[in-house]
Simulated assay, not measured.
Amino acid sequence: MNPQFLERWSPRSFTSEEIPEDTLMSLIEAARWAPSGSNNQPWRFIIARTPEQRAAFHSFIAPANVAWCEKAPVLLLLISNTITPRGTLNPSHAFDAGTAWGYLALEANNQGLVTHAMGGFDPDKAREVLQIPADYALHAVIAIGHQGPKVALSEQLQEREVPSGRRPVSELIMQGKFE
């Protein structure tokens, strides 16, 4: 197995070092190539890079998450269009957006960056603040940047600043039917 799958994790400590535009776009380019149902590519990214844009994001991110993500130089909201180009409901929009997030996260790791996706945000407030139309689903806010030192976090967060374990494969698969 390629080591990129084992090396990628979601730290909470970030430095405020800016991410060059071409590097950030390489992450988006990787996500662009993710597969999607009927090649609809329903995912979109709303990016916050300036202090003002990040402050707008902080207004809808849970305070416990702002405490650690406020140093990240890039915040990104992953959304997906729930309607296909033909005007019908897209049953795979969330699945497709998740695949794009995975590609983005792996490319960030390849570029020496770290990412941390968070579900702790107020989607209604985000929709209002960022003027997102009703036919888009909001999935996650993603912090992107260079990994910071563990000691920059609160004691409580320092305890959690380690890669998470994984379930054994035997717990993930079932043979022929649900067991």
Score class of each variant (00 low, 15 high):
Thr23Met: 11
Glu29Met: 04
Ala67His: 01
Gln158Ile: 09
Glu21Lys: 05
Ser38Trp: 11
Phe45Glu: 02
Glu179Gly: 14
Ala108Gln: 06
Asn2Gly: 07
Gly176Thr: 05
Asp124Phe: 11
Lys71Met: 13
Arg49Glu: 10
Leu76Cys: 11
Ile142Val: 14
Gln158Leu: 10
Thr115Val: 11
Phe178Ala: 15
Ser164Gly: 11
Gln111Glu: 14
Ala117Ser: 13
Arg32Thr: 05
Pro123Phe: 05
Gly176Cys: 05
Arg8Pro: 01
Arg166Cys: 03
Glu179Lys: 14
Ser26Leu: 10
Arg54Phe: 05
Ala56Thr: 13
Gln147His: 08
Ala100Val: 00
Leu24Met: 10
Gly119Leu: 09
Cys69Thr: 07
Tyr136Gly: 02
Pro3His: 08
Met118Phe: 03
Ile28Met: 14
Leu89Phe: 01
Glu18Asn: 12
Met1Asn: 09
Asn110Arg: 14
Leu27Val: 03
Ala126Asn: 11
Asn109Met: 07
His93Thr: 00
Ile28Arg: 10
Ala143Asn: 00
Phe14Pro: 12
Pro51Thr: 01
Val74Arg: 03
Thr23Ser: 14
Arg8Met: 03
Arg160Met: 15
Arg44Cys: 04
Met1Asp: 11
Tyr103Thr: 03
Ser154Ala: 09
Ile132Phe: 06
Pro35His: 06
Ala64Glu: 08
Cys69Glu: 03
Glu21Trp: 00
Leu153Cys: 04
Gly165Asp: 08
Leu138Met: 06
Pro91Thr: 08
Arg49Asn: 03
Gly98Arg: 02
Glu17Ser: 15
Gln111Ala: 12
Ala117Phe: 03
Val74Glu: 04
His146Glu: 02
Arg160Ile: 13
Arg166Lys: 05
Arg8Asp: 01
Phe95Glu: 00
Trp9Tyr: 10
Val74Asn: 04
Phe14Tyr: 14
Val114Lys: 11
Ala143Ser: 06
Gln53Phe: 00
Gln175Thr: 01
Met1His: 03
Ser36Lys: 01
Leu106Cys: 01
Ser59His: 09
Ile79Tyr: 01
Pro163Lys: 14
Arg86Phe: 13
Phe60Gly: 03
Thr15Val: 02
Gly102Thr: 07
Ala94Thr: 12
Glu159Thr: 12
Glu107Lys: 14
Glu29Ser: 04
Arg8Ala: 07
Met174Asp: 06
Pro149Leu: 09
Ala30His: 09
Ala97Asp: 06
Arg86Thr: 13
Arg166Ala: 10
Glu155Ile: 09
Ser92Tyr: 15
Glu107Thr: 05
Ala55Trp: 07
Phe5Trp: 15
